[in-house]
Amino acid sequence: MSTTTRNMTLGQRFLANEWSALAVAIVIGLVTLAVLSPAFLTEFNLYVMLRSFCVVLIVAFAQMLTLAVGQMNLSVGALGGLVAITVGGMMEKWGFPVPVAILCGLAIGAAGGLINGLLTVRTGINGFIITLATASAFTGINLGITESIPFYNLPASFVAFGTGRFYALPYLLLPPVLIAIALAFFLARTVPGRQLLAVGGNPQAAELSGIPRDRVIVMAHTLSGLLAGAAAILAVAQLGSAQPTIGVDWLLMSFAAPIIGGAALTGGHISVAATALAVVLIVIIQNGMVLAKVDPYWVQFLLGALILAAVGLNRLRAVRAGGA
């Protein structure tokens, strides 16, 4: 392994890297858009792009953590919607201070994830079915409480955070960046983080080496719920209102980014950097579509094509690596 790495040129080493194709695609996209559209590199457009990056990134991380242990969380969007409206309701109806409401929202997210994890581990039923069911339950609570009516009157300071910016940098970008750094550190350097990847990579081996498998899976689900909650709070700040529909369109995106970033459904193989790059690519494509004034339906179509292309590319690389 080490000798082959040493014999490769810099370019080859770059191409062997998982996210190389993503990086190339992003650069091509940026250059093309910058050349074709004068509006692309304006401060405001960059701000808009960075703003739409925030929520999607955390949603992708929420799914990534469950994928890491070979599970999935179909309830990210539903849980997000529930957290969004409870945070909105706490601030508008009950007059909670913003930090308290945010903490409560995060706690609800984590609790939802904990429920997912405990149900999956205790019953031994496939996480897909469990989270499909809890997703329906969370959505039901959301709609039952709000009857589809959003909370509009949120504290001014909270809304200001959602729209504020420093030149092209939205304040909203701060939490996702901190979360990404914390997550990368968590997965690379801490014992629970390593355990998480170990359980995903080979559950039997992990169990034999004394890692509490069930506890790690519950932890992954809890963290996933926590991140879904964080994404929801950001979405509320971004929109300036707590819409019950927050989260309904997260499912595809949540899987798309980690998978385009090379995550395997079987677990143990995820990358914070690659997932983040995948989100960048998705955001660039969406922005390009808007600038080109293409039918918005093309976004849906292209996202599907992008997932297939990424999966095909990864497959090709795996086959080649196997043959070499």
Partner: peptide, 21 residues
């Protein structure tokens, strides 16, 4: 040889998008 979950997740988006276009 890719998991049917991923393929059909992607194709769901592809088909729906194509239909809407």
């Amino acid at each position: 040889g890719v998991n049917s979950f991923i393929i059909t997740l992607a194709s769901a988006s592809l088909f729906l998008g194509g239909m809407l276009i």
